[in-house]
Write a protein that binds this DNA or RNA. Structure first.
Lengths: 138, 138
DNA sequence: TCTGCACCCTGTAGTCACTTCAGGGTCAAG
DNA sequence: CTTGACCCTGAAGTGACTACAGGGTGCAGA
């Protein structure tokens, strides 16, 4: 599970370094998000530092809630260093407002559920407020 | 799109009444969440009030963030009116803590993204802080 | 009566981001 | 020389729908 002496990473090493599952790394390669690495004599993948950097970027962006398609776009942009970064900025802003929407939805939902719970007096299901609140005819 | 004079609902009427897509209603039927309705002479589905009630329950629970499998369980419970409702209560509590977890994850994420945005000075991609923060070698 | 249109039917495949599985091959340690 | 950890491929499964192809039904207007 460590970097080989030739400076290449096995898929397991790469996965461990980026907190990714091995299958997920192969998946990213399959969908063309990660370039195909070279192979060893025994047909094992031999990833480079570049693969590591790219995979780190992908995972970090995923953690920030970007979709794989957004990440594909970001990776495309990141290669064009002379263009201005307004596009990247706009994507980040869009991401933030999506997050704000999700948070307020979740808060509303939480309020509703805890109101329901507050009314629950541990009786039988026949007079359970939670079931009752979900059913339309009550 | 209205309730027929025999008191049955077409799939479109049922969908509209519960703010569901027609395909989703058929999907719920296919996976056994909604019982198979009767059919008209022309092989159209003819849903009853019971279908409407059950579908309302499903949609409402979905809106509250329950999974279809949890809903299947809730529907099973709702039919056993003499049992005590501690199970239902526990499911609601579990749901609330899952929501709390999601909210705090999203808040952390939001903070991180807006820190990034705050540093963005609309230069070229080469010195874009967002791209930079995602890349490992900076 | 014909025609057009909105609605309905079935079955299949696509979505997203993975995960799991079956059925093998490779490699280093003991 | 065998054991066990790791690796390989290709296909299928997950959740909760959504979309599409290729039809049939029902009703209003011309």
């Amino acid at each position: 599970m460590s970097k080989g002496e030739t400076g290449s990473y096995s898929i397991g090493a790469l996965a461990e370094a980026t907190d990714t599952k091995v299958e997920t790394v192969r998946y990213y390669e399959r969908i063309g998000l990660l370039p195909e690495p070279g192979r060893t004599a025994g047909n094992y993948r031999a990833h480079t530092e570049d693969h590591l950097a790219r995979l780190s970027f992908i995972r970090r962006a995923r953690d920030l809630g970007f979709t794989l398609e957004q990440i594909r776009a970001l990776l495309g942009l990141a290669d064009q260093k002379d263009k201005d970064c307004r596009v990247v900025d706009a994507m980040a802003r869009g991401q933030i407002s999506a997050i704000d929407r999700k948070i307020s939805d979740l808060r509303a939902l939480r309020r509703e559920l805890s109101d329901l719970l507050g009314q629950c007096r541990q009786g039988t299901i026949a007079d359970c407020r939670i079931i009752g609140a979900l059913s339309p005819c009550e």
